[in-house]
């Protein structure tokens, strides 16, 4: 088990460091810059979808969708970050409570 902990720790750290260590001359090229701008958008967008609709390797629709939907409405109403997160959690918890 410790081996897995250490492999994960070392590997994940080196992956982070690699990204920060790309020379700035490469990053200043317009195409690279545009792609680098869009990568967080794509990854965060994908994370939202995967964490809302999937359970390990299955696609499911459950109370999480209502919670994220409520968070979406809160964002449209320009709610601050913590409110959005709290609204999502409370909506999901209440729906689960109501539907048993």
């Amino acid at each position: 088990m410790w081996t897995a902990v250490i492999v994960s720790a070392l590997g994940c750290y080196l992956l982070k460091l690699a990204g920060l260590s790309v020379p700035s001359t490469v990053l200043d090229r317009p195409v690279v810059r545009r792609i680098a701008d869009l990568i967080p958008v794509a990854l965060l967008g994908a994370l939202v979808a995967v964490q809302t609709f999937s359970t390990v390797q299955d696609l499911t629709v459950d109370a999480r969708l209502a919670g994220v939907g409520a968070g979406f409405v809160a964002l449209l109403l320009k709610a601050p970050f913590l409110v959005v997160v709290a609204v999502a959690a409370v909506a999901t918890a209440l729906l689960r409570l109501a539907t048993g």
């Binding site: 958008v41 994370l47 997160v85």
Partner: peptide, 22 residues
Amino acid sequence: PATYGLDAAVPAAFLALVWPQL
């Protein structure tokens, strides 16, 4: 953690984080 809706709080947090860039 699902009892408290925390499993929905995580994607909602990511949605709030990506929001200003959309």
